[in-house]
Simulated scan of single mutants.
Amino acid sequence: MLIYDNRHIRRTHGVSMFSIRAIPAFSDNYIWCLSHDDSGQALIVDPGQAEPVEAYLAEQGLTADTILVTHHHPDHTGGIKQLQSAFPEVRVTGPADSPFKGTTNVVHPGDEVVWHGLTFDVIAVPGHTLDHIAYFTSSLISGRPLLFCGDTLFACGCGRLFEGSAEQMYHSLKNLRELPDETAVYCAHEYTLANLRFARHWLPDDEALEQFERRCQNLRDQDLPTIPTTIADEKALNPFLRWDDPAVVAAAESYCAKHGLPASSERDIFAAVRHGKDHF
């Protein structure tokens, strides 16, 4: 089983060590495992499959004590029941008012989730689904604040609007865009190269996107993940976050003129980019 190791931890006297790794699942999912190395306990994010998680935990001698759920889709929740059987004491934290009913610790936007001294803020990010939430901690993991954002924000992309509206997703992404620039963005899918194909189509003269695409292709050629990305990189590169960038606005206005769509607000610009990706 291939496990992507993103470990880069400073250890100081009296400070616990945390490690974070991606456990690949399905064809392009990442299940995130955050381990508290002093206790051997692990926090698992969006386990759509149980088997790769169980195999990794057994290999590392870890015990799952917490599962974080960002939204109800089966590729994020399908492994939870089996993991509950394997780890009867595991706490399953997830959004209230969700179609997924397997949570044991329901949270609402504005709540906090505390795990081994780390405090995660629960952020509402509807759009992809109506129940979608994200988890942010300002504590430094691998030297940076950390965001688990499920299918809301991807490297150079964002989630499809299966349940929510473009306006909801725009506001969700706007809230994430305001997080510290150095925040590491741990999304749930390896969609980067596909997202970049669209971004380069939308902005063919963007040299930074071209350079980033080469870097990501090199990583994938080595079977390495392209994530985490950072909020700073997404603000600079991701067309779904650049609704106030003149180049993105110009491309959106041209697209809207061709398709009879409005282009009078930042929300309209975001909606045009999303529409363009949906029909790319």
Rank of each mutant, 00 (worst) to 15 (best):
L2C: 06
D5C: 10
H8I: 11
S16C: 08
F18W: 11
I23Q: 04
A25R: 06
S27E: 15
D28H: 14
Y30D: 02
S35C: 11
D38V: 13
A42L: 07
V45D: 00
G48T: 07
A50S: 14
V53K: 07
A58W: 02
T63Y: 05
T66Q: 12
I67Y: 02
T70I: 02
P74M: 10
P74N: 05
D75Y: 14
K81W: 04
Q82V: 15
L83H: 00
L83I: 04
V92E: 00
V92Q: 00
T93S: 11
S98F: 09
P99A: 07
F100K: 02
K101T: 15
K101S: 12
V106P: 03
V107N: 02
P109D: 02
G110C: 10
D111V: 13
D111N: 13
E112A: 15
E112N: 11
W115M: 09
L118P: 08
T119D: 03
A124I: 01
V125Q: 00
H128D: 05
H128C: 14
T129C: 03
L130F: 07
D131C: 13
I133G: 00
A134C: 13
L140T: 08
G143T: 09
P145S: 08
P145L: 06
L146D: 01
L146H: 01
D151T: 09
C156H: 07
G159W: 02
L161D: 01
F162W: 06
F162R: 07
S165D: 09
S165I: 13
H171Y: 15
S172K: 01
L173Q: 04
L176W: 00
R177Q: 15
L179T: 02
P180Q: 04
A184M: 11
A188C: 14
A194E: 09
N195Q: 15
N195R: 11
L196S: 03
R197E: 14
R197H: 13
F198E: 02
W202C: 10
L209K: 00
F212C: 04
R215L: 14
R215K: 15
Q217F: 10
Q217Y: 02
Q217T: 11
L219D: 02
Q222E: 08
Q222T: 04
L224Q: 12
T230E: 01
I231V: 15
D233P: 05
D233Q: 13
D233I: 12
L237I: 08
P239N: 07
L241H: 01
R242T: 09
A251G: 05
A252I: 09
A252V: 08
E253S: 10
Y255A: 12
A257C: 06
H259F: 13
L261G: 03
P262H: 06
P262I: 11
S265C: 10
V273Q: 00
H275P: 11
G276Q: 04
F280K: 03
